[in-house]
Design a protein around this nucleic acid. Structure first.
Lengths: 179, 179, 179, 179
DNA sequence: TATGAATGAGTCTTCATTCAT
DNA sequence: CATGAATGAAGACTCATTCAT
């Protein structure tokens, strides 16, 4: 069942994603987490600290390990990047990231960093996998940004529209565009 | 200065965009609108009705008019499409659309329709501009979805990160990917 | 029955004097004042503002009007001063003044000023009524301070001990001490 | 470092004097006493019992021992009395005594006894030192009560205003008033 | 119709007290 | 005895909504 802190964060993640931070009373978090109301404040002195903890602890950008790039196979390389997204974050956390970024500085900062990091990696992977593309830096940049955009935003869109995008197809398409 | 109803909506638009719907008290709307507190409820029985009215009256998804497609120039055709969402709405209303979509049905529905319309147009434009691509329906669909995702994501993220993608470059890249 | 603000202050005065500021919930003030809980905060944004308003508005030091001094009759002069104490404040307010001075700066400041003012007046009255005493400034000062101390503190003592001091007797005694 | 009970009382004394009883959480007492939160309640079943214990154990009203009265020198006799309240208690405990007397019965009782004892001593001292004054019991009583009031008021007000009265001067003045 | 005082349910947060370990 | 996590009642304060004027 997990310890108290984890249960609180689990509950908050679900509820913030579903109804938004402002519209979620701490009492409801407590109930879903099956902890008494007051205990939340032993772990998080203010309600906003729950949000900050979620963002700090549950949107993790993985260490820049060796990128598994295969020269000549940019599609496969990107697809692997897309599958093993360097963002460890649940769909719920991604929704929170987008929804609360406007009004909470620390969330905004995290989202910005995530976006930047994703672009950097995609560009690096493409440079390795398709050496020829290196020449056109601007186009490479756009391809990387598109890749990041689609990956980050797809959860949001899925929720809103029921429309899903296959990461492999995205990878293949972007790779193809750089030929 | 506009009539009372308009002043209320003006104020709400500004405030919802800035602080979010939940965090904006009706009393503050009234103050900014220079309208007595109670009067808001003569026009909008519940606070949420202000949001609904804003979305209904101040976000128009443009009718799918003739698309200015040039066969043989998919990049140019998409670029024209990319230069603007088919959304007539102030920057503030766009913020509201994205921020409140998760939690308010009518907003979500509106944003979903926008996404659908975007995809439809992109697909249609591509079909017209690049007749050869028609054969691969799946790839066409992915390209259209990506196009929509990137445009919407940009809209959403631009204010948060300051990071922008050049719409022409996106158009060109997607067009190229279908060769 | 008085207006709302007055009723709130009346209730607070009684309750703060009886149980202390910290131990008096705003809900109890509201109940005694017969106003809804929330209305208090329309008039006083924070609970402490009720205390500050009480101190500012209900411990008034009267304008230094003509002191009714009769040369040669210091006892009578002081007695008149004691009866028409230049402090317009209920016994309850005096208790509040003493109890909350420790922890609330504005109360402390007021109490200090009251004490100073009382001493100043008593000295002035004595100087007028007993010209001969002027020579011994130190003794005059002590007499004035004692007079102020007894007057200010008598309410407190009465509450605590049931012991009362007759102001006339005090006046007479102090006057006599300066002979 | 003292045993647990002593450490709790030490901490409570410091904190109650500084912020008042109501505004001092038991958790803060525990922290300052370097004692686990729950342990306090093994020694004092309720928070108020800490206050009661402090008052009972750390404020002693001295037994009415032989008064050092010199017939013919009422001023000197009173001055010796005035040099200190017959109260063995730290400055902190004195603050607590005055601050909490209004609202806590046991504290009130203690302060009342102190006042009574002060009056008794003053009267007794004056009777011994100035045999002639015995005739006018009422005036003697007022003088004694004033003496007590001034001393207690000073104790209470000294920290608040920084204003002090010289005890010798008080003694001298009161003695003189009985001539 | 316009006004803003009135209403009270609901929110975050604190804290005395309990209790399993 | 010692520990500090757990409990929930209660407190300050907010705010959507109503309503007398």
């Amino acid at each position: 069942m997990g310890d108290v802190r984890t249960r609180i964060l689990d509950a908050a993640e679900e509820l913030f994603a579903g109804s938004g931070f402002e519209a979620t009373p701490t009492a409801v978090i407590a109930k879903l987490a099956k902890v008494p109301k007051g205990l939340i404040f032993d772990y998080f002195p203010h309600k906003v600290d729950v949000l900050v903890a979620l963002v700090n602890e549950r949107t993790h950008i993985e260490e820049a390990r060796e990128i598994d790039a295969v020269p000549g196979d940019p599609a496969g390389t990107l697809a692997r990047l897309a599958r093993g997204l360097p963002l460890r974050a649940s769909p719920a956390m991604r929704r929170i990231l987008f929804r609360e970024a406007d009004t909470h500085g620390s969330v905004k900062e995290r989202l910005g960093r995530l976006n930047g990091e994703l672009i950097r990696r995609a560009r690096f992977a493409l440079e390795l996998a398709q050496p020829g593309a290196r020449g056109d830096a601007a186009r490479l940049e756009v391809a990387a940004a598109m890749f990041a955009a689609v990956l980050l935003y797809q959860e949001n869109l899925w929720q809103l529209t029921g429309h899903q995008i296959d990461p492999d197809a995205v990878a293949e398409l972007i790779a193809h565009s750089l030929v």
